[in-house]
Design a protein around this nucleic acid. Structure first.
Lengths: 330, 330
DNA sequence: CTGTTAGCGCCTTCAT
DNA sequence: ATGAAGGCGCTAACAG
């Protein structure tokens, strides 16, 4: 494998000159550049990214850490991150956190193989994030709060979203509204639930714990929770699923029991994933500003890298998306 | 930022000893390990991944290059790649090729920032792949053939899939079957079309060029192509879309014109993307063995890295998936 | 078991 | 405009 040294030798110049020529630094005559480029070409020279990174103590790339690369990802989020990164001349890599603190993600975090990271992966421990984030290594966390002063938090206003969805169903005349929760350790779930509770309270509807059913954010979980609810007889008028995946599982469970949505029971979800528009009936849900969240995260990384002062937490508003899965009760 | 030198000094040992201790190499007494670890802890030492990579001329990670991180990805493919990579103790990163030969993907390829790469991204030029692949840098290409002896090709038998889907429709009694193509530069499309043609021929059905309509693999493109076909009056009995995305666009176009699928017209797609199961009617399509393709790609990388001899091209069979979008004509 | 040392390949100051 | 030289931080002989 040819190195810059080989190129320099073949071109008959010093290494430094070759480096300047190769990197387009305005310090060498065009004749020399020519020679160097030609030599590089002939030797099929390729610069070593790792050596370059080491020397410059900078990789010019940021990492997006997801709990599962093959997961149902928020493509809008990724798009926001990708475009913001590219428009700043940085590169982006995505890595998975399967394996938790000994995953690829954790290796990139711990060994600072990138200049900054955006984390959307519960299975990366907060300790790891705290231990990794540092002045020259900002980390933006999207799914929780974290202590380190170098780790910022961009969140979506889940509580507001939960409130609006619930209120909408109340306004449509529903009085008993179940809540199918996400996993209990999920901050997002917690907030959505609080919004739900608040809406109930503001409309003088009593909260009944029997209407809170445990789910886990998966389609399968939503399906099971719904089956269970149906088995208990006595259905609520409406059900608010803590995310769309579960709501879609629920739709399936209702269909299997010949319960029509929304005629027999109304349902709403949260997230506005792509599928939601295509299921039957199209799902009423709460859209998260994912693109914006992604773009903001990247923006913050660059601000921190530039040494600018930034807030520690950002809170983005949600949008309510009305489709056909909730009916108006006369 | 503390380096290994600092750790060694504080622990009162030589750097090599610190290195051994830190890397768990069986060469130092446990007392020394203790000391070193403690010093590292106190200094909040983090090894520099880039320095380590440079020294070992090896990153222990492989890259999966996709044309768009936020795209409608084959999650099964990613899962296959991910699991195979992890089970070999390697790391995986995904990077995008938006920007073509000056994208993040190309930087990783050109600068050999990883030990091997899997490419599923038409907008990375074959020249770039040829120029990057080398003995110690295997590249597996999933979407085309490429010259370099260090770049292998794992492909799905698109022709067979196209043949089976077409034959299925013929067997269901359809005589006029349109083909909505993908972009013309797509090898996959080409092969699917050949399968279609062959099935027609084998069943003595004449191919009529009016039944070949141009699409581009996007939902929007399928929608437009279908609209156009409808506008021309005189519909075929069935239509074979070169991929599911287009078929779904087509479904929408038919629905808008009150044409019922499959009662009025039958449709089949290709890919078996996740959505296909959920659209109305569920789409009959051809499943690609994506998980297997991903896992095989990784497997090949390791074989090449180990200096083993491998075939240059692999061809995986498809599965036909019967759902409800094709009806039997009596 | 521990220490010394020579680079990995590149960038960049400094001198020419 | 070009060259010489010193590391970036780490690993792995090699010597003791």
């Amino acid at each position: 494998m040819a190195t810059i040294k080989d190129v320099a030798k073949r071109a008959g110049v010093a290494v430094s000159t070759a480096s300047y020529a190769l990197n387009g630094i305005n310090k060498v005559s065009s004749a020399t550049i020519e020679k160097v480029l030609k030599a590089a070409q002939e030797l099929n020279y390729k610069k070593s990214g790792t050596a370059s990174d080491l020397k410059r103590t900078k990789t010019n790339t940021i990492a997006l850490i997801l709990s599962d690369l093959s997961g149902p990802y928020f493509s809008e989020l990724i798009k926001g991150v990708q475009e913001a990164t590219a428009s700043n001349g940085y590169d982006l890599i995505a890595c998975s956190s399967v394996g938790g603190d000994k995953s690829t993600a954790s290796k990139f975090l711990k060994e600072k193989r990138v200049d900054g990271a955006i984390v959307l992966a519960q299975n990366i421990s907060s300790e790891l994030i705290n231990a990794s984030a540092r002045e020259d290594f900002p980390v933006i966390v999207l799914d929780r709060k974290v202590d380190s002063p170098y780790a910022l938090h961009v969140k979506v206003n889940n509580r507001q979203g939960g409130y609006e969805a619930t209120q909408y169903m109340i306004n449509k005349g529903h009085r008993t509204i179940a809540y199918i929760s996400g996993p209990l350790n999920s901050h997002d779930n917690e907030e959505r639930f609080k919004g739900y509770l608040q809406a109930l309270e503001d409309h003088d509807l009593p909260y009944q714990s029997r209407w809170k059913i445990s789910g886990d954010f998966t389609r399968e979980g939503g399906y099971r929770a719904t089956k269970m609810m149906i088995a208990q007889q006595n259905l609520p008028e409406a059900v608010f699923y803590a995310n769309d995946e579960m709501a879609i599982g629920g739709l399936q469970a209702f269909a299997e029991k010949n319960l029509k949505v929304p005629e027999d029971i109304s349902v709403a979800g949260f997230d506005d994933i792509q599928l939601s528009e295509y299921v039957n009936p199209p799902l009423t849900t709460v859209r998260q500003p994912k693109y914006e969240a992604g773009a903001l995260a990247v923006h913050l990384i660059f601000q921190m890298l530039a040494g600018e002062k930034v807030e520690k937490t950002y809170n983005l508003p949600t949008d309510f998306v009305e489709r056909l899965s909730v009916r108006a009760k006369k």
